[in-house]
Design a protein around this nucleic acid. Structure first.
Lengths: 120, 120
DNA sequence: CGGCATCCCGTCCGATACTG
DNA sequence: CAGTATCGGACGGGATGCCG
């Protein structure tokens, strides 16, 4: 029954351009409103995309939505206690990503690896 | 300049349905031939996709290709020493993925969360 | 403020067939 | 055995506009 590899499951949850980043921000900031989260994300995520990603994360039980039922609306998003467990691999991914950037820069400085991206 | 979050970089490398799995297999098996790797992957990855993923992983310096220059062809793929460093987060992702499966099963047994997947 | 509706495009992914 | 060529569908992601 262990045919399903954990990696695949995790990738289904955090894959894509934004989900990992959203979880990362919520790990740091504890609680964020929709547009605050939106602006805190690197460049420019459209509200449509952010809403969709948040829905999926909620569906996976990682993110909780607190609607204060006020006018104008005040909605907060935060990680569930279970969502916080993603820190276990997100930290590792972050560390590795930072190192990878440096590695790639170094490699490109010494063009002795494959030098192939110019071969169509 | 630290606007670039490590998570994003890592996701660019590992994201998608197969890349994480491929790295995972190569972490376990040390060296695999094309079709052996292909068959070892969960279900059914087409050779076209596998070839593309391997190219991208090679381009990122994670996978090395050893062509034995024989007829019939004998090509092996293995992780570079740098590629092995992905173990740092792949293990964490695997652990979490396995637990997540159980968690999701438990949640679905107690339909008190959102109970909306039946709404088309 | 916090979304949803629409349109649109590029990429991902799969099946099949074919080559050296 | 180790791929490439071609086709096509599905999905992710972005731009814009509107609504409660």
């Amino acid at each position: 029954m262990e045919s399903r590899v954990g990696i695949s499951v995790t990738l289904e949850v955090v894959c894509g351009k934004w989900k990992g980043l959203i979880l990362w921000k919520l790990l740091q900031d504890e609680s964020l409103r929709f547009n605050a989260l939106r602006r805190s994300l690197d460049g420019n995520i459209s509200s449509r995309i952010l809403a969709r990603e948040l829905k999926q994360l909620m569906n996976d039980g990682l993110v909780e939505r607190i609607d204060h039922q006020t006018v104008p609306p005040h909605v907060e998003y935060r990680l569930s206690s279970y969502g916080r467990s993603t820190a276990s691999f997100l930290h590792a991914m972050n560390q590795w990503g930072i190192k990878h950037q440096e590695e790639m820069r170094a490699v490109q400085s010494y063009p002795g690896r494959t030098g192939d991206e110019s071969t169509p």
